[in-house]
Design a protein around this nucleic acid. Structure first.
Length: 323
DNA sequence: TACTCGTGGCA
DNA sequence: TTGCCAAGAGT
């Protein structure tokens, strides 16, 4: 493996092909950290608006540390993996207590919600430290480069790391995976490493690395109740996501009304078919009335928002409630 | 180790 | 429509 040639070709490609992403305009550890947490298992296009709102609202660790958790979760609503938001605030408090953002790989790794990938990303991008990132892109790129799905990715990443500019190298490998060496139908014709790629030489780039085995999807049915009164909507504390509010799913003694519609929502390997149904009854313990136009200010899951959209689209939905 | 956590875009 | 899967971490 010709490491110097690979470094040179990929680096040159990256200098020309990289996207203009908001978090690439800085090396400050705080915004880099926020972006890296948001990008975990989440597409760039989904992250950008959240990143900008979050930085505007919480411009530094102190602002994030002293915020109400509900405000943090509300800003995160819709992005998913909500433990990231809670860990983010926990880590902000760690940073404030320490007096500054940790400047070593070891110190960064101690932050709540920061694992090996994120620690290496922040260490290299913000501090220029020689730590190679391994994420899904890197695993795929190196599996194809070696035509070996079981290659020791961390060892190879450490070996290929460009120690003159770890930040540029790490992002170059990930960018190649995101734009060219994509999971399905890789664009080998545009790949700067095509001549080094063992998978391409063997014609296996469409099969390496293999797909991961996933548990079979379970189908389940649930019902969400829409209860309105005086222009407000009744929500109960989520029993799945701490700090979130959801539409009620069980109402002892309630009178059931018409079905307003259905939608599906998949979480991990379970696909739920939700029935949205009007109901009347007294508010369960712990429930609260919210003005519907203020739901953006509270932590509120996507299922509730989908359901409320259906209920207001329904010819017998919100309009009928106003009477 | 294997499982779980959310959501949306895309083929 | 359904399945795939994306800049992973915690348990």
């Amino acid at each position: 493996m010709d490491a110097p040639s690979i470094r040179k070709k990929l680096t040159r490609w990256y200098e020309n092909a990289q996207r203009d992403l908001p978090w690439r305009r800085t090396r400050e550890p705080y915004p880099i950290w926020i972006s890296e947490i948001m990008l975990q298992q989440t597409r760039v296009g989904a992250v950008i608006p959240y990143y900008q709102r979050f930085l505007a609202r919480f411009p530094d660790p102190a602002a994030l540390a002293k915020a109400h958790e509900d405000d943090v979760l509300a800003l995160w609503s819709g992005l998913g993996y909500y433990s990231r938001a809670r860990n983010l605030q926990k880590a902000a408090k760690q940073i404030v207590d320490a007096g500054e953002f940790p400047a070593t790989h070891e110190g960064i790794l101690e932050l709540a919600g920061v694992g090996s990938y994120t620690a290496a990303a922040i260490a290299s991008i913000s501090f220029g430290l020689p730590h190679a990132v391994v994420d899904g892109n890197v695993r795929r790129v190196f599996a194809r480069l070696t035509n070996n799905a079981n290659v020791d990715t961390q060892a190879l990443a450490d070996k290929l790391l460009d120690r003159r500019d770890p930040a540029r190298w790490n992002q170059a490998v990930m960018e190649l995976g995101a734009l060219v060496c994509v999971p399905k139908s890789p664009l080998c014709g545009e790949c700067p490493l095509a001549n080094h790629c063992m998978a391409r030489a063997e014609g296996t780039q469409g099969e390496v690395p293999g797909k991961k085995i996933k548990p079979q999807t379970e189908l389940r049915e649930r019902t969400l109740f829409v209860i309105r009164r005086s222009g407000k909507i009744l929500l109960v504390p989520s029993n799945k996501v701490k700090g979130f509010w959801d539409l009620p799913e069980r109402l002892p003694g309630a009178r059931l009304g018409e079905v307003l519609g259905t939608f599906t929502h998949t979480i991990t390997h379970r696909r739920y078919t939700f029935t949205v149904r009007r109901a009347t009854g007294k508010a369960p313990k712990g429930s609260r009335w919210f003005e519907e136009h203020k739901l953006g200010d509270i932590p509120c899951g996507t299922t509730a928002k989908k359901a409320l959209r259906i209920s207001s689209d329904s010819p017998n939905g919100a309009a009928a409630d106003a009477s």
